[in-house]
Amino acid sequence: MTASAPSSDRPTSPTPDPRRELGAALRRWAAGGAGSIGVVRVLDRHGFGTVESGQLLAGTADGETAGLLYLGALDDAAVPLASAAAGLPQTRAAHVAESAALQAGLACAGGATLLGHPLPAALAEALGAALEEARPAALLSTVDGAAALVLTGPDLEEAHGTLEDGPPGLDAEAARVARELLRRGATVTERRTVGDTEVLVDLWVPVPSVLVVGSGAIGEALLAQAALLGWAGRAVTELDEARAAVQAFTEADVVVLLDHAPRFDAMLVDGIRRGRGFLGALGSRRTQAARRERLLRAGLTEEELATVHGPVGLDLGARTPAETAVSIVAEVIAARSGRAAQALGASEGKIGG
């Protein structure tokens, strides 16, 4: 029987979160007695256009897989590698022609070096739990896949496994690098030289949550823009609500203060001292200057005040509420990725995350 399309008066099921589904699979395999699970990660790539960081495919020795690499365009190489990697680390080259890339939904052709390596059951359980429960997590390995370390928790304070087949102190230094990346508040895949060891880092950060403090057309446009990006968002107008939300902030969270009332200075003080997330404040330069003087009198330092993005937003020449919302989320994205906001044509760096 052919299923009918959902009608407008019948709610549709929410789209499953692929990261949570991957986490559930890792936990299921670990609990089922799999001694080791194969994971496939992107060691190097060229082409493909802009693609998400944190790509991960996992599989068991008997051929079951979960996760996705580049919308499935690399499956011919990645799927058998996931099974083989449960027993032995190895790399494999994968190339995707233009027609196949476009068919998969990528922007253009490309190639990648894939790293497949075992992930012991205890590490798979730890990583799977963090992914399934939408908590920050990092998977680090030597670039040959011989050793792996999983970090979980709000500040990546929980360590599972070790990289220390290499030099002593490598785990601590690699964890420091991962926590430094966490402060950007964005999911990343990077190769880093840690001491004398090259390490592949995949860091997963939960989707941002935007808190708009205040009301009006700009706030409505900002929440609409956040929804378009797949970010959670809500608006509050009371100080107690705003302070409670900021006290619970993670690195992924964003607050944009629209209300110019001095009473909301207390929320900014909370956010600055909490030291997490993106703090932005709208307002004219006169409003910003008056707020700055009040915060200095409240005991904040110039260095602390520099952590507030104000006036929030990139200088795009925005005139309408919708354009202002674009400028604000653009600054959030730039800050989360650690990039200077400039035209791509003026940049010589890597395009995309």
Rank of each mutant, 00 (worst) to 15 (best):
S4T: 14
S4W: 12
D9N: 09
A25C: 09
R27C: 10
W29S: 00
A30Y: 03
S36C: 01
G38L: 02
V39C: 13
V39W: 10
V40Q: 11
R41K: 10
V42A: 06
H46D: 08
V51H: 04
G54S: 12
L57M: 05
L57I: 03
G59V: 06
D62T: 08
D62A: 05
G63H: 03
T65G: 02
T65V: 15
L68E: 04
Y70M: 10
Y70A: 08
L71W: 03
L74T: 04
A77R: 11
G87A: 12
T91V: 10
A94Q: 04
E98N: 07
C108P: 12
A109R: 14
G110H: 03
G110Y: 02
T113Y: 05
A121I: 10
A126Q: 08
G128H: 07
G128N: 06
A129L: 07
E132P: 00
A134Q: 09
P136F: 11
S141H: 14
V143R: 12
A147M: 02
L149H: 09
L149K: 01
V150Y: 01
E158W: 10
G166F: 09
G169R: 14
D171C: 05
E173T: 15
R183E: 04
G195Q: 13
D196S: 15
T197I: 11
E198R: 15
L200R: 12
V207K: 12
L211W: 11
V213G: 09
G214C: 14
S215T: 01
G219D: 07
E220P: 00
L223N: 01
Q225I: 07
L228C: 03
L229H: 10
L229Y: 06
G233H: 02
G233E: 14
R234F: 09
V236L: 06
T237V: 04
D240M: 10
D240S: 11
F249E: 02
T250M: 03
E251A: 09
V254Y: 07
V256Q: 08
D259P: 04
F264A: 06
D265F: 14
I272M: 10
S284R: 02
T287I: 02
T287G: 11
A290G: 07
R294W: 11
R294T: 05
R294P: 00
L300G: 05
L300R: 00
T301W: 09
T307F: 07
V308W: 00
H309G: 03
G310C: 13
P311D: 01
L314A: 06
D315M: 03
L316T: 08
L316M: 13
A318V: 01
P321E: 12
T324I: 15
T324Q: 14
V326W: 11
S327N: 09
E331T: 09
V332W: 11
I333K: 07
A334T: 08
A341F: 08
A343I: 02
S347D: 15
S347R: 15
I351N: 03
